[in-house]
Amino acid sequence: MMTDLLITIVKILVVFGVYLTMVAYLSLVERRVSAFIQDRRGPNRVGPFGLLQPLADGLKFMFKEDLIPHYVNRPVYLLAPLVALVPAFITMAVIPFGNTLPLFGRDIPLVIANVNIGFLYIFALTSMGVYGVVLAGWSSNSKYSLIGGLRASAQMISYELSLGLAAVGVLIVAGSLRLPDIVAAQSGLRWNFWMQPLGFIIFLIAVFAETNRLPFDLPEAEPELVGGYHTEYSSMKFAMFFMAEYANMLTASAVVVSLYLGGWQVPYLEQAGLPPLLLSLAQVLAFVLKVGVMLFFFVWVRWTLPRFRYDQLMRLGWKITLPLAILNIFYSGYLVVAKWV
C-alpha cells in the first residue's frame, strides 16, 4: 500500500517535472523553428544554442511590474489565468506514456491514473479550458478582450462537437474509454492513423481550433484585437496564459499520439527480443518522440498557414467537419461489423 502510494507520487513528480520543462522549452522551440522557417537565426545568445532562453524569459516575467487596470472585475480577473492553466496540466494524468516498467520485481504501469472513463475525463477537462479565456475576456472590461472571449467561446463550442465525434470512431474500434486500452488496440501496424484517416484529419483540425493555434487563433488575433483576451494582462499573469497555450498544445499532442499514432507502440518491437527493461524504456522514448513530432507539426503549421476569417471558421466547423465526423462514425461501425479490426 505504502509503496503503491510512493510509486504514484514519484510518477506524478516525474511526469509533472518533464511536462513543465517541455512547456518552458516549447517557447524556445517555437521561436527557433519560426526563425528557421523565416530564414532567421532566432534566440541564440543565452547559453549554448539559446538553451537558457526560457530561464531568462521566466525571470524577466517575474520581475516585470504586475499591472492590474483599475477598471477590471478583480476577483474574476485574478482567477482567469489559473482557470486557463490548471485543466491543461491535470489532463496529463490519464495519458499512458509507456506500457509497464519492470523494476525491482514489480510491473509499474506507466500512466498516473488508469480511470475507466479516461477519454471522457480528458474531454471534460479540455472543455474547461475555455473558461480561462472567456473569463479573462469579460473581466478585463476592454472591447478587444471581450471580442476575444466571445470568439473563443463560439469557436470552442463549434469544434468540441467535431472533436468528440471524430474520437467516437476510435472509441468504437477500441471498445473502451481507457487510454491504455485504446493504445493497446493499436498494436503492430494497426494505428488509427491508417485505419481512420478521415477521423484523424478531423480530429487534428478540431484540436488546432481547441488549442487556439493558427490558423484558428482568432481569440487572440493580434492584427485586429491587439492581444485578444489577454490584452490587459501583464507580468506573470500574461506568462500563465502563454504557458497555458503551450501546455494545451503539449496535452493535445499527447492525446493525438495516444488516440491515432499508436501511443507508446512501436510496430513489432516486442518481437525483437530486447530485455524487458530496455523494451519498456524504448517505448517511452517512442512516445516522447511521437509527441515531439506532433509538436513540431503544430509549430510548422502556425508559421506556414494564414489565419481563417471568422465566418470561414464557423462554416468549416459546422458544415464540413461535423458532417464528416458523423460519416466517420458510420465508417468505424462498418470496420467493426466487417471485422477489419
Binding site: V115, N116, I117, L120, Y121, F123, A124, L125, S127, M128, V130, Y131, V134, G137, W138, L146, G149, L150, S153, A154, M156, I157, E160
Partner: peptide
Amino acid sequence: EFIAAVQVLVYAGAIMVLFLFVIL
C-alpha cells in the same frame, strides 16, 4: 464515473459556455 464526466462535459463544458457566450 460516467455520469460525473458527462455532468462536467455537458453542463459545465458546453451549456454554460453557451450561457457565457450570451452574457458576453
